[in-house]
Design a protein around this nucleic acid. Sequence first.
RNA 1: CGGGGCGUAGCGCAGUCUGGUAGCGCAACUGCUUUGGGAGCAGUGGGUCGAGGGUUCAAAUCCUUUCGCCCCGACCA
Length: 493
Amino acid sequence: MSNQNQAAKAAAPRTAITPTRAENFPEWYQEVVKAADMAENSPVRGCMVIKPYGYALWENIQKALDDLIKVEEVQNAYFPLLIPLSFISREAEHVDGFAKECAVVTHHRLEADADGKLVPAPDAKLEEPFVIRPTSETIIGDSMSKWVKSYRDLPLKLNQWCNVMRWEMRTRLFLRTSEFLWQEGHNAFETADQAEADARKMLEVYNDMYVNHMAIPGIMGEKTADERFPGALRTYTIEAMMQDGKALQACTSHNLGQNFAHSCGIKFQGRDGNEHFAHTTSWGLSTRSIGGLIMTHGDDDGLMMPPRLAPQQVIILPIIKGEDTGGVMAFAETLQKQLKAIGVRVQIDKSENRAPDKMWAAIKRGVPIRVEIGEREVAEGKLTHTRRDLGRDSKTTCTEGEFLGSVKGILDAIHTNMFEAAKARMLSRIYTTNTLAEVKAAFTDGRDLGYARMPVELLNDADYQAFKKENSLSSRCLPFEDEGRMVLIGKSY
RNA sequence: CGGGGCGUAGCGCAGUCUGGUAGCGCAACUGCUUUGGGAGCAGUGGGUCGAGGGUUCAAAUCCUUUCGCCCCGACCA
């Protein structure tokens, strides 16, 4: 390489992902998903294939969240994928909300037509079509109506991990797919206060999940009426901000009041001997959170996994020249065993790739800590480790013993650093405004796009509504900390 | 579902306007040299040009129908 080329390379270091975030954020996102080997499009329109590395992340999300949910004394169960059409029809608002995006099962058998092509058999048409669940309020409500007889049966707290389907016009891996994975919790209570407290409580659980596991900051608040779940009294949300300033609804928790109890017949004999309808809640977090994780933490070299959810927290890269005469692999395997013994998820890259290729593969997949072991180091009982979040400047050489003693602390430090960086980024892009003129300025004067925090009264201003439409803004939430006086608005995913 | 763009080797693209033997880069494979921040040389394999129909002696190229993908909007988690 010429000196000139070297100089050019130094001036503009090559990034593992092209385009960069600044050049084209949506394209960057897709490239990261591909480079990290998370998922790909499937032959089925709008549905994705989640690859092993992406699914491993989802499994870790499930484990962490499932534990948090069970602390709240929620029980897991499973309900059918197919929901009778009449069930969906029970709640008027609910129908309006989901009818447009339901996939419908109308036949129960295939047969060959005149041309020998398989078609749904005309005489196998179902009396009543089934809807592939877009969400399960109605079918779980049906079970609840049978299980709840007395106030002594309450509260009843159920959760299921499953797939759901919503026919989407425009899909993007993880962020919006026609089929996605999630958990949906459905709780039933004796009183309105209990249901309200529960909806808020489950939002706190999600916040715990986002802050302490995903390292993603968000603004907790209530949805405005136009953004509410169809059939809910109140919808609570955590709005996270992606690196392009757009909002991502990270999860939702709904107080459904007695709406679904009425339509599903969830009633019980109360302490007063009279019949009452239960008060229900529902709450969900989906594979969409993985999209949020990528767009919160990724950089121009690819994904950055938050350490507590990373499928591999440490990757060991043996650097072997020719034959492994120096015992490099043996040293790596011993280290792996010791790390596993203290509860660290660790993998050795045993591929025959060259050292730089192994390294870049680990960077693109966002493994929090890379450990390089060469022959010289084996002789000295040392190793070199590098943090994904800080990059090559964090390269440190220490003894094996020192590393074993510090690795957990390093993982915690990475988590904290990632969270604080994301939080600082988010807070610096929320503009507090008092007038419509300020709102307009916030979105048009060249500042980094983010959210405007404005007085709720402006929502009804015709001039604001026109501006909102022109700029494809939406109300993200009424932040709890503003006690209903302010609303966050922004563009969203 | 509206507006725009694109479908050619695993990936990224040229070739299309002006019809005439299917190309380039990367990746893959083989060999040798390399190996602690993206290696070098030599060689090899791989494509019914998204699909159907039409025009023509001849179609990746022209006409037509259709499917899919991406971006922006509307809708939504």
